[in-house]
Design a protein around this nucleic acid. Structure first.
Lengths: 218, 218
DNA sequence: TAGATTGTTAATCGATTAACAATC
DNA sequence: TAGATTGTTAATCGATTAACAATC
């Protein structure tokens, strides 16, 4: 189960979450013509400790950094993109073409992250049959069948809370291996299925909690 | 800086994130007329350990649970909502009325979480001046001025990556204390400002990483 | 060479889980 | 009473940070 990169560097869950931030910044630097970066300079930008950046970089970098100068920007970008699977494309279906669903369908950025939404589903007979941002929308009854026939590994759930578990079950019946869940509910799934929750209520909870503490302490 | 609830129970960041999930489920149970729950039954639903649930509940619950029976559903709901600040309302502004911005503006659910978006801003002169989901949209130049005059504590950033830092600076100039950032960039802010990132690239990174491991190990 | 920066092992910190006493 | 469940202190696990040797 452990995850190793070159030799035996382990990339923690937290480290994986930091990668897209590094990547975004490194690409910006590359765009400005910068070819070498050091861990301390990156750390300063993100307000991370330089030890953390050094460790993260050494975990993903295929070529070692050079003492005194640092790492090659382009190589870091390439290595991180490989680690994150951005060089290959995973196909996904999206269920629930409401406001949020439409926003995700319209967001072209996902293809840079190795995700391509190929089909969408909606309960509403009006919406099903239409095409949104170039993606065909089908009736929800077809979820399992289509997923299985197209061998889709990822399902995105943007339906209301009450429908989420049903949709989740249909996706799993269709052979989906991972679910990106935007509904603010816990989904019950078999052990071999991965659920990644994008729960705005949970983020908001943190935000207002910190805010309250801040106000109290001032 | 430590955060204590009744007597000296500390609520960890992770525990705060779990609260909205508990809350959603407890409300569902309450709707079904269930009045008492035990930690083990909740744990079974979420696939958490019962020790974790017990600890989380005892950290937020103002009245103790009763051995052998459990906790009163309604009291737990009330206590959690209090802890998360859902009983008071924080005003927020949203900057960037694109697809995602519109989706957030239209989502009525936030009011249940103690957040009310009162004003929106957009760069586009067409969009500014309009009203979306009942919220007035103003030109971006007015961000600082309006936030300060309305004494807004929270800013939501849904602009493209390239504009995010500028908008962030304007919000802070307007006296905003916390920022909910949907742009996939690190924002540089003074120490006393809280940034809560909602980075879909980061979630996706985790998703595809796990997926890849799963496929490799099968 | 001297000094900045890398890479790695050990120490610390935070969060989860185990163990167990208290109690309805 | 016996047994399920709570509440809490101690042990473990994972992630971050400290310390330090290696090197360009």
């Amino acid at each position: 189960m452990e995850e190793h990169n070159r030799e035996n560097h382990i990339l923690s869950t937290q480290a994986i979450k930091r990668m897209p931030y590094y990547l975004q910044y490194l690409k910006k630097l590359a765009g400005e013509g910068i070819e070498i970066v050091s861990a301390p300079s990156i750390a300063a930008h993100f307000n991370f400790t330089e030890i953390q950046v050094r460790k993260d970089f050494s975990a993903v970098s295929t070529t070692k950094g050079k003492p005194k100068s640092g790492f090659t920007v382009k190589e870091l970008i390439y290595d991180m993109e490989s680690i994150l699977g951005y060089h290959s494309v995973n196909q996904a279906v999206l269920v629930g073409v409401g406001q949020l669903g439409r926003a995700l369908l319209s967001y072209r950025g996902f293809e840079n992250y190795g995700l391509k939404i190929v089909v969408a589903f909606d309960q509403d007979p009006e919406t099903a049959g239409s095409k949104i941002a170039g993606v065909n929308v089908f009736a929800s009854e077809k979820i399992s069948d289509l997923c299985r026939r197209m061998n889709i590994p990822i399902g995105i759930i943007t339906v209301p809370e009450t429908a989420a578990q049903t949709v989740c079950d249909q996706l799993i019946a269709g052979g989906v291996k991972a679910i990106w869940n935007f509904a603010p509910v816990h989904l019950s799934v078999p052990q071999n299925i991965l659920v990644q929750n994008e729960n705005m209520a949970a983020s908001l909870a943190l935000l207002s909690k910190h805010l309250e503490e801040k106000i109290v302490s001032e």
